[in-house]
Design a protein around this nucleic acid. Structure first.
Length: 152
DNA sequence: GCCAACGTTGGC
DNA sequence: GCCAACGTTGGC
């Protein structure tokens, strides 16, 4: 079982949206490194820190888990979508993602400042300089520290 | 709104 | 294959 951190802008899709929807396909990723993590490395049941980016304040809002793998991102075939990719073929979609399922919402958001203040998290990927990747691996020990900070 | 970091594109 | 130009991410 692996652990991950996935970023979403709460104005677009927040932990509350996921709570309401129960599950959601993680569509719209158009970065190969992020896609490859979803396509090659994620497995059913992997746990995910749900991170609110471009938020006030930014931080980890809760936990989700991988509930389906090998999901073709349907926005790549939707001409009206900003994520439309004319080069992608239906028989062999370029953009494969996963479906995630709501697990829990933190009582209190664990802000980026909180993460930075915890020395146990010093080498966590999301805290490294220039770490823009929207899907990134997370150490089990970091996951557990953040989970505890979130009150779970 | 600014800007650092980093990915992508395209000319050569 | 190099690299400059450009675009995007995302914190501040």
């Amino acid at each position: 079982m692996k652990y991950w951190l996935m970023k979403s802008e709460p104005d677009v899709y927040s932990i509350d949206n996921l709570h309401k929807d129960k599950t959601t396909p993680w569509e719209g990723v158009r970065n190969y490194q992020a896609r490859n993590f979803m396509m090659n490395d994620m497995q059913l049941g992997d746990l995910v820190l749900f991170y609110h980016s471009n938020a006030e304040p930014p931080g980890v809002a809760g936990i989700a888990k991988v509930s389906k793998v090998g999901v073709a991102d349907k926005t790549q075939f939707d001409k009206k979508s900003e994520y439309y990719d004319e080069k992608s073929k239906k028989e062999k979609p370029t953009w494969i993602c996963v479906e995630v399922e709501f697990v829990a919402k933190f009582k209190n958001l664990v802000s980026l400042a909180d993460l930075r203040a915890n020395e146990k998290l010093a080498d966590m990927v999301v805290l490294q300089k220039g770490s823009r990747l929207s899907v990134q691996p997370c150490d089990k020990k970091h996951f557990n520290v953040v989970k505890k900070m979130g009150g779970l």
